[in-house]
Write a protein that binds this DNA or RNA. Structure first.
Lengths: 160, 160
DNA sequence: GTTCATTAGTTGCGAATGTAACTAATAAAA
DNA sequence: TTTTATTAGTTACATTCGCAACTAATGAAC
């Protein structure tokens, strides 16, 4: 009892190998690089890009559905759509059957942005995953899917 | 010339399989769940956790080194450290050899938080990667490393 | 030693974010 | 029909973020 407990000495975490940290660092680096593309070419944010991408793929959708599909908070969608509408990239048609919601579509301007960005975004992705073999790419896709399930379901309601 | 060019018709991107999007969604879900842990137990943010984790691992460091190690913008580090200092979790000792910088260390309170969070963070990670086999975990780690390199070096200074 | 450049760290500012509260419309209950 | 609950979407508010500009200290050039 002469040494005053020589430090709690928890085995430390090595941040560099801590999965949540690593995922975040990679995702952030990728997002940032991609955002630069959207921003410099068309002055749009990633949220705006996601709205455009969703409408480019599905033609017509409500804000709620866009949010569900692109996994964005409804206020984020609302504001992204508002900006895009102000810039005439998205058109709103209220639904006569349910006046709470409105169908959103790309305008010609919006589609022009989409058409311009799609090949570049794909090229970006290709360049990114050039570091991986085809098998690795497939593997990564599968692993991300598993993590996604795990992250949304399991984690977050753990013990405590 | 009777049809007015039947839509540009770029092959659309499927957002659900677009790597940057997927990485971001997974990373965000994981971060959010983990942040809830740090927040509810100790009222700290992820940035603050990263500072604590870095100091927990390396004992003493300057703000600059913390930023480099945990890949955070210097203003983010500065503000996180300021909050932690105000809460007596981090102590600052200015370097007599170079008065611009200061060495940072965890106080007892800071270390208590660290000691409390480390096993929980590791449990969280374990739970998360329980969805994967051991080989898959190793594979993911390697793939993330490759992507990290790719994202930081290659991409971002492409053509245009 | 004096000037100039660089570096560590902080702060002002505008933009972006999520929560919670709100509006307006629909649906369910009574 | 009238009340009550739910839903789509917007907005007020507080917080967070990164860039750019700043301060203070060090180092380099001369």
């Amino acid at each position: 009892m002469n040494v005053k407990s020589p430090k709690p000495a928890v085995t430390p975490i090595e941040l560099e190998h801590f999965l949540p940290y690593r995922l975040n660092v990679v995702a952030e680096a990728v997002s940032r690089a991609l955002a630069r593309l959207y921003e410099t070419r068309h002055g749009i944010s990633i949220a705006e890009w996601r709205v455009i991408a969703t409408l480019g793929q599905y033609t017509q959708m409500t804000a709620k559905d866009i949010g569900a599909h692109s996994r964005m908070h409804k206020t984020k969608v609302s504001r992204a759509v508002a900006r895009l509408e102000a810039r005439q990239c998205v058109a709103r048609t209220s639904n006569a059957e349910d006046m709470r919601e409105a169908f959103l579509e790309l305008t010609d301007d919006g589609r022009a942005i989409y058409d311009d960005l799609v090949p570049r975004a794909l090229a970006f992705e290709r360049k990114l995953s050039d570091a991986l073999t085809v098998e690795e790419q497939a593997s990564l896709d599968a692993l991300l899917s598993k993590l996604e399930v795990s992250a949304f379901d399991d984690v977050g309601d753990g013990e405590t």
